[in-house]
Design a protein around this nucleic acid. Structure first.
Lengths: 180, 180
DNA sequence: ATGGGCATGTAACGGGTTACATGATTCG
DNA sequence: CGAATCATGTAACCCGTTACATGCCCAT
């Protein structure tokens, strides 16, 4: 059974061949906002994909103890990825530390809690500005059958998420100030 | 080092003494939208909290092979929880399978992808209706030093999140239909 | 020549899920 | 008396993080 990370790797590979190292940088923060992985896990999963013949690699002479390995999707890999896209996602449990903190916030000093949320708000606002810049680089919404559509769709979601988060932070700050 | 689940347990215990079983039901879906855990993990973590003297229990004669154990926070536990609230959250990596699917959606049949998002949209709309009902049960926003404030804050966040998600689903469905 | 970036991997560990194991109480 | 619910716990396994280990290539 291919893990979700396996599909994430294949989703990147569907846009072009990469080394494990390049996959790791593409999937590290702050890029790749929706699936992150360290290089160790990527190498492990690449070997599983290799065993299932969903990816293959061209060995190249280059840096590293074993040289470069440029991975690409096999036709089966592309097919498996396409089939996976339309399957309903297995829902992962929501785990949000900041929401948990808000749940216990009544115990703490409101001013300190407000400070915590002011810091988060600044982060969200910075990300909103960055995503808006990225969105402005698109002249139009790409057509749904072009790879760029995937980029645009995730960007739209990320922007919407950050705005929702920022709004919540503002509401929290307001509430915490109102009691004084 | 207390795990985040440890703090989640303490956050529930701060509202009143519970058994491990009651903690597990309180932290299972669909309740407890922001931190879930199975009973096995809860028992493991309760033993760690016990070792750190952050919680204690009263043994009661009752059901179960070892009887009931009603856990409550110790003063140190309450203090640790209060201190933790105002510490910045260690950010967990964003991992969102649906966003990943949207990133690879250009590979698949638009109508099938649209169907996937219509199903998700229906789920979000159902949750919005439920959360709105719960929100209506509050007459006012509770004061920031009352436990109910924590409930209201998480509910606010959950509602805002579901609306953002629903909006994204609607946008996706629209885009996927536009190409025909 | 040496330091930083490129590059591939393994090992140890922690947290979480699922399955397994056990048994008391309560209600019909 | 049997089933559902309440209740506690262990074991196997998976996934991910962090740390460790190695070594090439290129620019200064």
């Amino acid at each position: 059974m291919t893990s979700t990370l396996g599909f994430a790797i294949m989703a990147v590979l569907a846009r072009g061949a990469r080394t494990g190292y390049e996959l790791a940088t593409a999937m590290s923060r702050p890029l790749g906002y929706f699936w992150t992985a360290g290089h160790s896990q990527i190498h492990v999963d690449l070997q599983k994909l290799l065993a299932a013949d969903l990816v293959r690699f061209e060995a190249e002479h280059g840096p590293g103890p074993q040289g470069r390995k440029v991975y690409h999707l096999t036709p089966q890999g592309r097919e498996a990825l396409r089939d996976w896209v339309t399957e309903p996602p297995r829902s992962r449990p929501e785990r949000d530390e900041l929401v948990l903190k808000s749940y216990a916030s009544w115990l703490a000093d409101p001013e300190q809690v407000a400070e915590l949320f002011r810091e988060r708000l600044a982060e969200h606002e910075a990300r909103i500005a960055e995503y808006e810049r990225q969105q402005a680089d698109f002249e139009d919404v790409p057509a749904a059958d072009r790879p760029a559509f995937g980029n645009y769709a995730t960007l739209w979601c990320g922007l919407s998420y950050e705005r929702h988060r920022a709004a919540w932070c503002r509401w929290m700050i307001e509430q915490l100030g109102a009691g004084s």
